[in-house]
Simulated assay, not measured.
Amino acid sequence: MPISTRWVVTGLLALGSATAALAQQSPGPGAAGAISEAVQEGTNPYRPPSAHTPDPDEARRAKCEALEEQYNTLSKQRTYQSSGPGTQTAQGRTIPKIERDKTRKQLQQAYRDNCT
């Protein structure tokens, strides 16, 4: 009586499943064994590291240093920029509308407000 291919494939699959189950039976010594024991006992000796809470004084100091660095990197020369369309005079000439760049002054004020 010939054995059908279907029965052979089914038998091989069953044999493979049994082998995989035996291989996963015990994790062995070391960390894996300790974790397995902890899970079986319902305890967990492993705790994630506690999150580092930033010191408010350290954060403030870092912010002040960043403001000071930004302030010092800006040019000390006055700079101007166009703030919109120019103004037309009675003679028909257009005078550009410009304003002084206030970035340096704003950084200086922010440093005073937050760091002094």
Rank of each mutant, 00 (worst) to 15 (best):
P2S: 03
I3N: 03
T5I: 04
T5S: 06
W7V: 15
V8G: 00
V9P: 02
T10H: 04
G11V: 01
G11I: 08
A14G: 07
A14I: 04
A20W: 09
L22T: 05
L22W: 07
A23Y: 11
A23D: 10
A23R: 12
Q24G: 13
Q24D: 14
Q25N: 08
S26V: 14
S26K: 14
P27A: 11
G28Y: 08
G28K: 05
G30H: 09
A31G: 07
A31C: 07
A32E: 13
A32S: 11
G33V: 05
G33A: 12
A34H: 10
I35T: 07
I35F: 09
S36E: 15
S36K: 14
E37A: 15
E37G: 12
A38S: 10
A38C: 07
Q40E: 14
Q40T: 10
E41V: 08
G42T: 00
G42Y: 02
H52Q: 01
T53Q: 03
P54Q: 02
P56K: 09
P56H: 00
E58Y: 05
A59L: 15
A59R: 09
A59C: 10
R61C: 00
R61H: 04
A62Y: 03
K63Y: 06
K63D: 03
C64R: 04
A66N: 10
A66D: 15
A66W: 11
E68Q: 15
Q70M: 06
Q70K: 04
N72D: 12
N72P: 00
Q77M: 10
R78S: 10
R78I: 07
T79A: 06
T79P: 00
Q81F: 14
S82N: 12
S83P: 04
S83Q: 07
P85V: 00
P85L: 03
Q88C: 11
Q88K: 11
Q88G: 00
T89F: 01
T94M: 10
T94Y: 03
I95H: 01
I98K: 13
I98F: 14
I98S: 10
E99M: 08
E99L: 06
E99H: 11
D101N: 11
D101A: 01
K102A: 10
K102C: 06
T103E: 05
K105E: 15
Q106H: 12
Q108M: 10
R112C: 00
R112M: 13
N114I: 04
N114E: 15
C115M: 09
T116L: 15
T116Y: 13
